[in-house]
């Protein structure tokens, strides 16, 4: 009787487990396979492709390092690569310099219209990237607003051409694009700081500045890291901004890549450049993963 009961209890539990497994496979299986097919495999395939070789009108599947050697030895590509890294770094720093105080303002200073202001910060994230880049052409261009206004008020006679089609215009536009990318996660991190910590610090006699440096800043580091990763990776691999506003000195790695997939028709070499971007992205993720626990440990 007892052993029978034991069997009935156990088998019902087993049937339940089987049902749960079926449900799991039903929910998880299709998206998992989809991501394998259209994300993991394609990204992986880029690696493979980058070791192949372009022949006249085809691609030869012969393993070789030539594409990577070319990235490194050809001074043009190397310059562009370093230029892109530099632009990404400058943009990341500048976007933080603007975005952090903005987030701080939202979290600690703005009281009345916080929801509206928050909305104003994130709305640009979801509006057309292309158009927001393009509009800087209208602003900085030779016939653009800045030149127009300056001539109109008589400050200059001839339009200036130094404010567009160079690295400055690329950086300015990218900073403009990425301020919300930084402000948003920083704000989320600042929001989460328990007010008691801050008050306790003030209570213990730390001044505002010291409270900021010792309590608020360290606690907001995860937000800074998240925002910086987005900014660095996405600006490093952008081709829209340098195409529209770059000019000769503003060329970035993204321009070269689209060139390889367009006129130059050297897909393996383009893939090698893409792998460089992917590696930078992965390095950034790894760096962040390493930095975050350390930032947390410092607080604890």
């Amino acid at each position: 009787m007892t052993s029978e009961a034991a069997v009935s209890g156990g088998s019902a539990a087993k049937a339940l487990r089987r049902k749960r497994l079926a449900l799991f496979l039903l929910c998880f299986g299709p998206p998992f396979l989809y991501l394998i097919c259209f994300m993991i495999l394609p990204y992986g395939n880029v690696f493979q492709y980058s070791f192949w070789k372009k022949e006249l009108y085809t691609v030869a599947a012969e393993f070789n390092w030539e594409n990577y050697a070319r990235v490194w030895t050809n001074p043009l590509y190397r310059t562009v690569l370093f230029n892109s890294l530099e632009v990404a770094a400058i943009v990341t720093v500048c976007a933080n310099l603007v975005g952090y105080p903005l987030a701080y303002f939202l979290a600690f200073v703005a009281r009345k219209h916080r929801t509206l202001l928050y909305f104003l910060v994130i709305a640009p994230l979801w509006t057309s990237f292309l158009l927001r880049v393009f509009v800087w052409k209208l602003i900085l261009g030779v016939d653009g607003i800045i030149n127009g206004v300056l001539i109109y008020i008589g400050l200059i006679d001839e339009p200036m051409s130094i404010i567009i089609y160079n690295r400055f215009s690329v950086c300015l536009t990218l900073v403009y694009i990425f301020i919300p990318f930084v402000a948003l996660p920083v704000y989320a991190a600042l929001e989460k700081i328990p007010r008691e910590y801050v008050e306790a610090s003030m209570d213990l006699g730390a001044g505002r500045w010291r409270t900021f440096v010792r309590v608020i800043l360290p606690l907001s580091i995860p937000g800074v890291i998240a925002g910086s990763i987005f900014t660095f990776c996405l600006s490093f691999g952008d081709f829209v901004t340098p195409t529209l506003l770059g000019g000769p000195s503003g060329i970035m790695i993204g321009n070269i890549i689209i060139g390889q997939f367009g006129a130059a028709f050297d897909w393996p070499f383009g893939s090698a450049l893409a792998v460089v971007i992917l590696l930078v992205v992965l390095a950034m993720i790894a760096l962040a993963a390493a930095a975050e626990p350390r930032a947390k440990a410092r607080i604890a």
């Binding site: 394609p42 990204y43 880029v46 691999g237 689209i258 893409a274 992917l278 993720i285």
Partner: peptide, 29 residues
């Protein structure tokens, strides 16, 4: 399940990877 944390991270990668990489990767395939 095993590897859930990893999966959750990997799933987010396309948000950080510049669009042109995703585009050309799919183009190749």
């Amino acid at each position: 399940f095993v590897g859930k944390a990893l999966f959750e991270r990997v799933m987010l990668v396309p948000l950080i990877v510049p669009g042109l990489i995703t585009g050309l990767a799919l183009l190749l395939v």
